[in-house]
Simulated scan of single mutants.
Amino acid sequence: MTAILGNEKALDIPRGPVTATVIVMGQGDEDVVLTAHAIDAGTTVRSPRPTTVQLIDITGHVELGVEPRAGGVFAPGTLLLLTLRGTEGTEVRLPELDVAGRGPRTLVAIDVCDERTLAVAAVNPRGERPLPPLAAAARSEGRARLGVDQTEQTVHLAVLVDLSASMRLALADGRVAAALDVIAGLSHVIGEGRELTAWLGLAEPIAVPASEARLLAGATVEEAARHGSGIGFRAAPRRSLAASPSVTYIVTDGVPADLADLPISGPDTHHLVLTGDGFAAPAGLPASTLPATGGRSAVDHLLTTPGALAELVASMLAAVPIAAHPAVTRTVDGDH
């Protein structure tokens, strides 16, 4: 009998020995270690190989998890399939799980119900929040760069998109959308991971209606088209765009005229995301460049050009005050 372990409740299986095996889809098994943590000292745990755990005498709470063998986070494209086999031909499977860019995590908990029954439950029943391909790749790259699923302390993220007439091409060819997708992905590592504050920049900022991170690029570009371009862009508006501590990413095609008004230190920092490679940010102000791609999709360029996304993500993390501070991996992360 095979049962799929869902999100709603635990499954009961006959009490007895349990063998757990993890299969790594599309990657080598040598990159993954299956772990077991038994609360009760009476439980016998054996690991004949890195991807297999045998629980001989389960006398109390046991948690099964996975971790990258080399430490840090799992490689891009890592998909796991966990199977538990018990007595009387029982088999329990956890739905295929994408752990790319994630650190060690607990997957399943086993508890003793009575003399005849064990209860098996998913610890992380909900998977990753869905993101567009580039945002998901940026999320994985950010986790790999920091070595954690999500930083212990989050910062508030805001995006200010320059609506000057010179930005029309970057809006039309997808470079602005690509930058927004990367920021959306990073928000799941360093930010709130749910909503981002997006603004359109003219003389005064115009708020983009709140949306989930996965919808950020589309909502912002659509709102920009509705308002059209203008003059008088201010990179340092008179009003605060995010709660403190914060990082405001300014997507523009040149160095703003009011650059001197931007704070570059303290709890609230700014970071230029330049959509052209003909400008250089002044010393002291973090900046990233998303160069023109000669008509090629900026999303495709970042996803397929070796090192392009890694370089962009590394530079975009430079503005984050907590990036250099200790962080933790969240193994029970709800819906992040």
Rank of each mutant, 00 (worst) to 15 (best):
202 L>K: 14
66 V>E: 09
40 D>E: 07
45 V>W: 02
166 S>G: 11
26 G>W: 10
201 G>M: 01
231 I>G: 02
132 P>C: 10
15 R>I: 09
6 G>V: 04
93 R>L: 14
50 P>K: 12
33 V>F: 02
301 H>V: 03
335 D>T: 13
309 L>T: 14
158 A>T: 12
182 V>A: 09
58 I>V: 15
95 P>N: 10
252 T>S: 12
28 G>V: 10
148 V>K: 00
277 D>R: 15
207 A>M: 07
75 A>E: 14
313 V>L: 08
301 H>K: 01
154 T>I: 03
296 R>F: 03
241 L>T: 11
180 L>V: 11
214 R>E: 08
276 G>L: 03
290 L>F: 11
110 I>S: 13
313 V>D: 14
244 S>V: 06
165 A>G: 06
286 P>L: 10
101 G>K: 00
22 V>F: 02
279 F>T: 07
9 K>G: 10
249 Y>I: 09
211 S>M: 05
260 A>R: 15
224 A>G: 08
116 R>F: 05
236 A>C: 12
251 V>W: 02
291 P>G: 07
94 L>W: 00
303 L>I: 09
233 F>E: 00
29 D>Q: 12
51 T>L: 12
67 E>P: 01
314 A>E: 15
290 L>Y: 03
147 G>R: 13
140 S>C: 07
127 G>E: 11
48 P>R: 04
287 A>N: 08
11 L>Q: 14
26 G>F: 12
7 N>Y: 01
176 V>M: 06
322 I>G: 00
336 H>N: 13
38 A>Q: 08
336 H>I: 15
253 D>G: 14
241 L>V: 12
258 D>L: 06
123 V>L: 15
292 A>I: 05
312 L>A: 13
179 A>F: 02
148 V>M: 01
322 I>Y: 00
226 R>T: 12
269 T>Q: 15
24 V>S: 07
96 E>W: 01
28 G>R: 09
51 T>M: 10
188 H>T: 13
273 V>M: 13
15 R>F: 01
246 S>F: 03
12 D>W: 00
212 E>K: 12
118 L>P: 02
224 A>N: 04
88 E>S: 15
224 A>R: 08
169 L>Y: 04
95 P>R: 07
225 A>M: 04
40 D>M: 02
252 T>A: 05
161 V>A: 14
162 D>S: 11
52 T>D: 10
167 M>C: 06
236 A>L: 06
6 G>K: 11
278 G>A: 11
82 L>W: 03
122 A>G: 10
298 A>L: 03
93 R>T: 15
96 E>C: 04
53 V>L: 01
259 L>D: 00
250 I>G: 05
2 T>R: 14
64 L>H: 06
136 A>C: 03
61 H>P: 01
276 G>K: 08
306 P>T: 10
334 G>A: 13
235 A>R: 13
271 H>Q: 15
62 V>N: 07
194 R>G: 01
218 G>I: 04
291 P>R: 08
230 G>S: 11
151 T>E: 08
317 L>A: 04
296 R>T: 11
190 I>F: 03
236 A>G: 09
120 V>G: 08
43 T>H: 11
120 V>W: 00
192 E>A: 12
39 I>E: 11
4 I>F: 02
262 L>C: 05
82 L>V: 14
198 A>W: 01
125 P>Y: 04
331 T>Y: 00
257 A>S: 10
328 V>I: 08
238 R>K: 07
182 V>T: 09
111 D>C: 07
